[in-house]
Design a protein around this nucleic acid. Structure first.
Length: 479
RNA sequence: GUCCCGUUCGUCUAGUGGUCUUAGGACUCAGGAUUUUCAUUCCUGCAACAGGGGUUCGACUCCCCUAGGGGACGCCA
């Protein structure tokens, strides 16, 4: 029990779930599952100004939608207190007092203006931009006086000013950073809420987190965190910093250059299976050439040791291919359920389930996202307008002969079978002398609205006798 | 600017000193086969070890430097 691995995904509720965050969540999840540990969801909502209504619910829903189930979280208690940091302020209070007592932190009464001015001066003098520690050596009396006057304050960490920190990151191995380059980080803001750095360290420790797996953007903050662990006398968790997900121009993946919200991908008809598979491979790869991974397979084969160091470009092109692959190879019934809302939204009738399944089955062959499926399915419902080229083919003398011939023979048929169709096809050639494109194009145009597309027997089968006759009759009127 | 981290085909990556590699796979792209068409599927092809020094009998693999890249430098996370 004490050796149990506990990892956490700790997003802040500022809107939607970012695909980069999804990968972080996925790796945490996989590591927990692989090791039989616990995967914890903690909401880092200490910045009241950025809080977005409904963001937490959205986050949870999205995690659920892709199937990353957490063991503990806001709605799954694990006896580690609240999983919202905003509800843990009393806890942080205790520890910043301890830090104050241990002289590892200090009161700072600098105002935003003071700091702004300080930074401007530092830039002008080409100095490093960093808090200059002016409140560091305030006497007890001064502090008391300021406090008595009700001056707003923050609590800052008293970072050592010489020597260096050395730590080991699972991905990056040895990293050393000089203390003098580390800022006296604000721990408690003037509104009384903790900053990420304090809350994160306190919660990770109190929640028994053994491995911190998060994005590389946190790497340079590690010294600040290590300082706090040390000051509080705690053993720090193992660190594992993930390479960043990149835009095509190699900058950090951002909204400006395409979709980044997981919910948007889902809405567009990307399957969770494809999204997870694709994202897992952005920065991780097992030995060998395998590319297709189900969640189960990932859970079995994932390892932190094989995470790459370099950032990876999010290439939608490959995601599209992968999604298409899953669309075609996952169980038809499952795809049909996923596709339902798209059909309904497009106003397509799915009341005939047998027919619906057939349509989904043939339509999924030609798409890479579910949002395209209705476009592929539409010809089975209605035919839109014909182009001039199409009309020329339809109005062609041979085509008209063909339509009459088929109409006549179809009406005589009891039921339409593939055998019947093939026979009629053959007769068309034998009796009318029409073959090849002259045969197939007009028929497909009449029944499917396009010279290209599904195989004729498939179209006949799905449309049924009545509808095919109706569509063929129209061709004669068209002229 | 300072600090930190990285650099294998356009993209995701395999590769941990030699034999499997004339650097492999996947996506994209091009060509071909299958398909009456389109799509699928299959086959073939194009395409990379950033550069320079070392170390070594031998470096994509180890070390150093340079270049270009990214991240961090907030009372945001």
């Amino acid at each position: 029990m004490n050796n149990e691995i506990r990892v956490r995904f700790a997003p802040s509720p500022t809107g939607y779930l970012h695909v980069g965050s999804l990968r972080t969540a996925l790796y945490n999840y996989l590591y927990a599952r692989k090791t039989g540990g616990k995967f914890i969801l903690r909401i880092e909502d200490t910045d009241r100004s950025r809080y977005v209504e409904g963001a937490v619910e959205n986050l949870i829903e999205t995690l659920q939608a892709v199937g990353l189930e957490y063991d503990e979280g806001p709605d799954k208690d694990g006896n580690f207190g609240h999983y919202f940091q905003s509800k843990r302020t009393n806890i942080y209070k205790k520890y910043f007092r301890e830090l104050l007592e241990k002289d590892a932190a200090y009161y700072c009464f600098c105002t935003e203006d003071d700091l702004k001015k300080m930074r401007e001066e530092q830039i002008a003098k080409k100095m490093d931009v960093r808090y200059d520690g002016r409140c560091r050596n305030l006497s007890k009396e001064q502090v008391q006086e300021n406090l008595a006057q009700g001056k707003p304050f923050v609590i800052r960490a008293k970072i050592p000013d010489e020597g260096e920190v050395v730590f080991f990151d699972i991905v990056r191995e040895r990293i050393s950073i000089k203390w003098e380059t580390v800022d006296d980080q604000v721990l408690i803001k003037s509104d009384g809420y903790p900053t990420y750095h304090l809350a994160n360290v306190v919660d990770d420790h109190l929640m028994g987190i053994t491995h911190v797996i998060r994005g590389e953007e946190w790497l340079s903050s590690v010294p600040k965190h290590l300082f706090l662990y040390q000051a509080l006398g705690w053993k720090p968790p193992k660190m594992c910093h993930l390479p960043l997900l990149l835009n095509p121009d190699k900058s950090k993946l951002s909204k400006r250059q395409g979709d980044v919200a997981v919910e948007d991908f889902l809405k567009k008809g990307y399957l969770p299976e494809a999204l997870l598979n694709f994202i897992a491979l952005l920065g991780w790869h097992a030995k060998g050439d395998d590319e297709l991974y189900s969640l189960d397979k990932l859970e079995n084969e994932f390892s932190l040791k094989r995470i790459n160091k370099a950032g990876s470009v999010f290439d939608v092109e490959k995601l599209n291919w992968m999604n298409g692959h899953y669309l075609r190879n996952l169980e038809l019934g499952y795809i049909a359920i996923k596709a339902k809302s798209f059909f309904v939204e497009a106003g397509l009738d799915i009341s005939d389930n047998e027919k619906y399944l057939k349509i989904v089955d043939v339509a999924r062959n030609r798409i890479s996202t579910l949002s395209e499926i209705t476009e592929a399915a539409k010809p089975f419902y209605t035919i839109s307008t014909y182009s001039d080229e199409d009309r020329q083919i339809i109005e062609n003398e041979n085509s008209q002969k063909l339509f009459s011939f088929w109409l006549e023979n179809l009406k005589a048929l009891d039921s339409i079978t593939e055998e019947n169709i093939n026979q009629l096809l053959k007769q068309s050639t034998d009796k009318l002398g029409i073959k090849g494109k002259d045969l197939y194009f007009p028929l497909r145009l009449a029944l499917f609205g396009s010279v290209h597309g599904q195989e004729l027997p498939v179209i006949f089968d799905i449309l049924g006798k009545e509808e095919t006759i109706k569509r063929l009759s129209k061709m004669l009127d068209l002229k």
